[in-house]
């Protein structure tokens, strides 16, 4: 039952990805942009232009390009089916490698941020719900209004000013490690994990130190909506008939709270998952402020330089990850709430 459900979802997911790849492939080519002239510069000779065009493969019919990209013409070189996302038109290195370098940075950043935001926001939201209109509840309301109303890069800059420049407790916003430290051998791409794997606790601590401000910024931004959501769902759960009846049955207070929390968690989990998928590409401003070369930065660069294979690769990978996250969420949701059927 469960296996079949997962298999079905995966098959549907792959179909969605194929559709997406083809759509993105054509949509990019509708852009009023000329990647060739971008590559050869202004006023090129006709031969140089033609040669660059041939080099990028843009001289061939568009369907041939698509078949090549999908890997249905393996004699011309590897495509998607062979596990290749193509070669970057700007750097000349394989896209898979480039994404493999940038994606872990973002994943590390936002996973850590979400974990901390979750751990902080759920109890705070619950507290607010237990005493709606109380001091804690009002404080949280003002905070979430405040935190959500200003863009994250602004908070990032404020944090840098406060914690690095004024208080000096944070490192400068110059990447994942100080420039003098040699990074641990790359295994997962996430520096904290790699440092632990390489047995270098000092590097691990340093990486965490460098993650401190970007994570704090994201936690600050993310906690607002999560707290609100948890609070709202918790208030609703506490007013539900089955919680009232749990009181009628004389259940201990902690058990009543557990009944309500479980009912409140299911929709909150969904929101958190959706936010996570969104942040994969949306953390770009925080990445910029703290000079982290994550996937957001990478995709912005790819778009600005008309690097079609890179854009396609980023869209494909982020969508794929999002689909997997949604699947996982639906499974978690079904575990929490038996009314959800596979």
């Amino acid at each position: 039952m469960l296996v079949r459900y997962i298999a079905t979802r995966l098959v549907i997911g792959v179909a969605q990805l194929v559709g997406l790849v083809i759509a993105v492939f054509f949509l990019i080519r509708l852009l009023p942009a000329d990647p060739v002239s971008r590559l050869v510069g202004l006023n090129p000779s006709a031969e140089a232009y033609a040669q660059a065009e041939r080099q990028l493969g843009l001289d061939r019919p568009i369907l041939t390009q698509l078949l090549h990209y999908l890997g249905l013409a393996p004699e011309e070189g590897p495509g998607l089916l062979q596990g290749s996302l193509g070669i970057s038109w700007v750097t000349g290195s394989p896209i898979v490698e480039e994404i493999g370098r940038h994606l872990p940075v973002t994943i590390e950043l936002i996973t850590l941020s979400f974990l901390i935001a979750f751990v902080l926001a759920v109890p705070i939201g619950m507290l607010g719900a237990l005493k709606p209109g109380g001091k804690a509840d009002r404080g949280v309301f003002i905070y979430s209004l405040f935190a959500g109303s200003q863009p994250e890069f602004w908070w990032g800059l404020l944090f840098v000013y406060l914690f690095f420049f004024t208080l000096g407790v944070a490192p400068p916003p110059l990447g994942s490690l100080s420039p003098l430290t040699s990074p641990p051998p790359e295994i997962t791409g996430m520096i904290t994990v790699d440092a632990l794997l390489a047995g270098r606790p000092d590097t691990f601590v340093e990486a965490l130190h460098h993650l401190m401000l970007p994570v704090a910024t994201l936690v600050f931004i993310l906690s607002g909506p999560i707290i609100k959501m948890v609070r709202q769902n918790m208030v609703r759960a506490l007013r539900s008939d089955f919680v009232l009846y749990a009181h009628c049955a004389g259940l201990p207070r902690w058990q009543v709270a557990r009944y309500a929390l479980r009912a409140a968690m299911a929709p909150s989990i969904t929101l958190i998952g959706i936010l996570y998928g969104f942040m994969l590409g949306g953390a770009v401003l925080v990445e910029s402020v703290f000079s982290l070369s994550g996937i957001g930065q990478y995709s912005v660069r790819a778009v600005l330089s008309f690097d079609y294979p890179a854009i396609q690769g980023v869209v494909l990978i982020i969508t794929g990850i999002s689909l997997l996250i949604y699947l996982a969420l639906d499974l978690i949701h079904a575990v929490i709430d038996p009314r959800v059927a596979y």
Binding site: F242, Y245, G250, L251, Y259
Partner: peptide, 18 residues
């Protein structure tokens, strides 16, 4: 629940769905 029991209306709502 021990000395005083109650049966309410809307039984399905009164049962914990989870």
């Amino acid at each position: 629940g021990r000395d005083i029991g109650i049966i309410v209306q809307n039984p399905r709502g009164a049962l914990n769905p989870m």
